[in-house]
Each structure stands twice: as structure tokens, then as C-alpha cells.
């Protein structure tokens, strides 16, 4: 009986944690776009990865 009670309480807690997770998952599209632009500029400014040296 106690074990069942424990299991139920754990399940209640887990359900509430999932609800909390959904409540916390707020979108932030403006920031997402701003950071994408920042990374794009940074990527473009990055030197090309070194390729095999070609010897004359």
C-alpha cells in the first residue's frame, strides 16, 4: 500500500515537472534571429579551414 502511494506521489511530481517544463519553454524568436545573424557574420569573417598545402 505504502509502495503504491510512493509510486503515485512520484508520478504526480513527474507530471507536474513536465507541466513546469512546458511552461518554461517560452519562445524567443527575436533573439533567435538576432543570434543567427551574429553567428552568420562571425562565420563569414572566419578564415576558411586549412586545406592540404599545395606545393609549387
Amino acid at each position: 500500500m505504502d509502495l503504491l502511494n510512493e509510486k503515485n506521489k512520484n508520478q504526480l511530481l513527474i507530471n507536474d515537472l513536465r507541466k513546469l517544463g512546458r511552461a518554461l519553454n517560452r519562445g524567443n524568436d527575436d533573439f533567435k534571429l538576432a543570434l543567427a545573424l551574429k553567428l552568420k557574420q562571425q562565420a563569414l569573417a572566419k578564415p576558411e579551414p586549412k586545406s592540404k598545402k599545395s606545393f609549387p
Binding site: L24, N25, K32
Partner: peptide, 19 residues
């Protein structure tokens, strides 16, 4: 190979990492 292609990985992971 091409840092500009990082954008695809960013799109894939932004929401998960930000949240």
C-alpha cells in the same frame, strides 16, 4: 568545411539549448 553552414546546426539546436 564551411563555417556558414553552421546555421543548419544552429536551427536544429537553438530551441533545445535556449530552453
Amino acid at each position: 568545411k564551411n563555417p556558414a553552414a553552421f546555421n543548419k546546426l544552429y536551427q536544429l539546436y537553438f530551441d533545445k539549448i535556449y530552453h
